[in-house]
């Protein structure tokens, strides 16, 4: 464990807590893409298959449980909670996210580190996570007024993967044989997808104006 990875995990945890806070306290999911949340639940479900088979550390197991429970509860809230579901804008959240699932799975079948079920599912979860934010970014461009919590949620989600990139660089230089090209490239693609969001987020913060993404 290194400081970049710990900071990355804490930032990721913060993004999930910000989202749960928003949904649980103001009982609203306005501006949140259910499709991105469903993709994230699938990412964790396929990545943490080894939850009960491989014990790495208490921290690792605890965080996996937190991410699994939180991502599925967020999906449940938006879909089934009688008040929250009313604020879900399904006419705007129209990204065909199922078109992301199959290509990621096929790519995982072809490009992976080991041709085993667990490893292919793990690689699938990596590719899927890289594109999972797309429905949310499309929704942000459609909904004019982005509320602070939603902006912070997306920012933290992008920031966590950027910190992971620093973690991979650190591990590459400190641990012999630590080479995971698949993880690095998909993590880089994921972070690049946030690039323009980061730019507008920083501009809105610097000029102290409301966050707006160009249509």
């Amino acid at each position: 464990m290194n400081i970049f990875r710990l900071a990355g995990d804490m930032t990721h945890l913060a993004s999930v807590l910000v989202l749960l806070l928003k949904i649980h306290t103001i009982k609203s999911c306005a501006g949140i893409s259910l499709k991105t949340q469903e993709l994230y639940a699938l990412v964790f479900a396929t990545r943490y298959l080894d939850l009960f088979t491989d014990y790495i550390s208490l921290y690792n197991t605890l965080m996996k449980l937190i991410f699994l429970v939180s991502s599925f509860s967020i999906v449940w809230y938006i879909r089934h909670h009688k008040i929250v579901r009313r604020s879900y804008d399904k006419d705007q959240d129209t990204f065909r996210h199922y078109f992301l699932v199959l290509p990621c799975f096929l790519l995982a079948l072809v490009i992976n580190e080991k041709f085993t079920v667990k490893e292919i599912m793990w690689t699938f979860s990596l590719y899927l996570e890289a594109v999972a934010i797309l429905p949310q970014l499309v929704l942000l461009q459609r909904t004019r007024n982005i509320d602070n919590l939603t902006g912070q949620y997306v920012f933290l989600l992008g920031a966590y993967r950027s910190l992971y990139i620093l973690n991979w660089i650190y591990r590459y230089f400190t641990e012999p044989h630590y080479v995971h090209w698949i993880t690095w490239i998909s993590g880089l693609v994921q972070t690049l997808l946030y690039a323009d969001f980061f730019y507008y987020y920083f501009q809105s913060w610097k000029n102290n104006v409301k966050l707006e993404l160009p249509a």
């Binding site: 995990d9 080894d50 790495i56 690792n60 996996k64 991410f67 580190e113 793990w122 993880t183």
Partner: peptide, 10 residues
């Protein structure tokens, strides 16, 4: 190494 899980990151 065998047995050791391939991935220790979240």
């Amino acid at each position: 190494p065998l047995g050791q899980p391939m991935h220790d990151e979240l």
